[in-house]
């Protein structure tokens, strides 16, 4: 019988450790063990994107991930992107453009969009991209496709796209380090 699984990971810059039931998802670990309740549980099946967090620079669904599998990983949640006193550019833009109504999907939307902008800078293609070369000037259809893993039941999509577009146009387009 294997020992109780253990994992040491960094969450928003702080070293954390896990030891316990291997059924613990990364989402429940963040919310219930660390009290980081910004990350939301929507469908709990990887369909809505409310639980999106950034692990080693990549956006993932925290609900479909076992925390025991994240030994050595670097996790960023909405709490790690900015603070009420110092909002990230996307957080500020979501406020400016009213990119939400109820706000439940917003942490996932912002984590997802943060990593999505890095994917754009890295030249990743999408199914909308002509010829599989990364788009130089992403259309709204392109942004919608790239944000398709995040549902908004209130239907704030047009304002979410406006918020993302503002950040896209104001931030220099350069490859991430």
């Amino acid at each position: 019988m294997p020992d109780t699984p253990q994992a040491r990971l960094v969450v928003n810059g702080t070293p954390r450790s896990f030891a316990g039931d291997p059924r613990r998802t990364l989402l429940d670990f963040l919310r219930l063990d660390l009290g980081l309740t910004g990350t939301k549980k929507g469908c709990d099946h990887g369909q809505c994107g409310a639980c999106t967090v950034i692990v080693n620079g990549r956006r993932i669904n925290a609900c479909l991930s076992l925390v025991a599998m994240h030994d050595g990983d670097d996790v960023t949640t909405i709490e790690g992107l900015g603070s009420p006193e110092a909002l990230s550019a996307l957080q500020r833009a979501f406020v400016t453009h009213d990119g939400f109504q109820c706000g439940y999907c917003t942490p996932g939307q912002i984590c997802s969009a943060t990593a999505m902008l890095d994917e754009l800078r890295a030249g990743w293609p999408s199914v909308v991209t002509e010829g599989l070369s990364g788009p130089s000037d992403p259309s709204d259809d392109e942004l919608r496709e790239r944000m398709s893993g995040n549902l908004c039941r209130c239907g704030a999509y047009s304002n979410i796209i406006a918020a993302i577009r503002e950040v896209l146009q104001t931030e220099p387009r350069e490859a991430s380090a």
Binding site: I60, N61, L64, S112, G149
Partner: peptide
């Protein structure tokens, strides 16, 4: 691949 799933799922 790009026609399937979501970006979050394709990352994992």
């Amino acid at each position: 691949i790009l026609a399937g799933a979501s970006p979050q799922l394709r990352n994992k």
